[in-house]
Simulated assay, not measured.
Amino acid sequence: MSQELDRISLTLPPEMVDHLDRIIEDWDYSSRSEAVRDALRDLFAAYDWETEEGGVHHGTITLAHDHHENDIADHLQSVQHDRTGIITATQHIHISHDQCLETITVNGPRKEISELANELRSIDGVSQVKVVVVGS
């Protein structure tokens, strides 16, 4: 890592250190510091998502649905066409005879991403919606 770094101290209970060390080994982190930096990036993205009124967020909306439900494919497509300003890509996967998984890549203001997710949640046949945002 070529950037300048500040050193801080972190105090954790032994069970958290043990858990962190298992993660470092399992996920092949180069150090505790790198694992903590990774976790902090996730924390920062979640914080920014919750608190920033402005700004652009990047992420995905993933939803599971029953593709046999009342014209759900047409309904989902209609909603997505109405939101082309924030949708950059979509992926549709058949996970079983009845169930599909759709991933919608989004780029836009928090309010618009949340409105899209809520609109998708309200569609009959959609069983789960998950929004994941990542830092800039």
Rank of each mutant, 00 (worst) to 15 (best):
D42W: 05
H94Q: 14
H75L: 08
A35T: 03
F44H: 09
L120I: 15
H75R: 14
I87Y: 05
A35I: 01
L63I: 14
D71A: 08
T84L: 14
S2Y: 08
A89Y: 03
K130W: 02
D38L: 08
D26E: 05
V79I: 13
I104S: 03
R83I: 00
E4S: 02
Q80I: 07
T105M: 13
I8E: 06
L76A: 13
L20V: 12
V126P: 00
A64F: 14
L12D: 04
T105L: 15
T88I: 08
H68I: 04
T51E: 02
G55P: 10
T62A: 15
V126T: 12
I24V: 12
E15A: 09
I8W: 11
H92A: 13
R7M: 12
A73M: 13
I72W: 06
M1P: 06
L63F: 15
D42G: 02
M16W: 13
E15G: 05
T88P: 10
A35K: 03
A89N: 15
L5S: 02
V133F: 01
H68P: 00
L12F: 07
L40R: 03
I23W: 10
N107I: 00
S78I: 14
I23R: 05
S33E: 07
T60G: 09
D6I: 12
R22V: 09
F44W: 05
A39L: 10
K111G: 00
V126F: 01
G59L: 02
H81R: 05
E115F: 09
V133Y: 02
K130G: 07
E25W: 03
L120N: 03
Y47M: 07
V133D: 01
S78C: 04
I87Q: 08
S30D: 06
I113C: 04
R41A: 11
R41N: 11
V79F: 01
R121N: 08
S127E: 13
S30E: 05
A35Q: 10
V129Q: 08
T90E: 15
E15T: 01
G59N: 03
D21C: 04
T62S: 15
T105K: 06
V132M: 13
I61E: 01
T84N: 06
S136P: 13
T84R: 13
Q91A: 14
G125M: 02
D66S: 11
S122K: 10
S2A: 07
S78T: 15
I86M: 00
R110M: 02
S96H: 07
R37N: 08
M1K: 07
T103A: 06
T62K: 15
E34L: 10
S33G: 06
L63Y: 14
H81M: 06
H94A: 11
V133A: 04
E4T: 00
S2P: 14
E34R: 10
V17D: 06
D82F: 09
V134M: 08
S78R: 07
D98I: 14
I104R: 12
R32H: 10
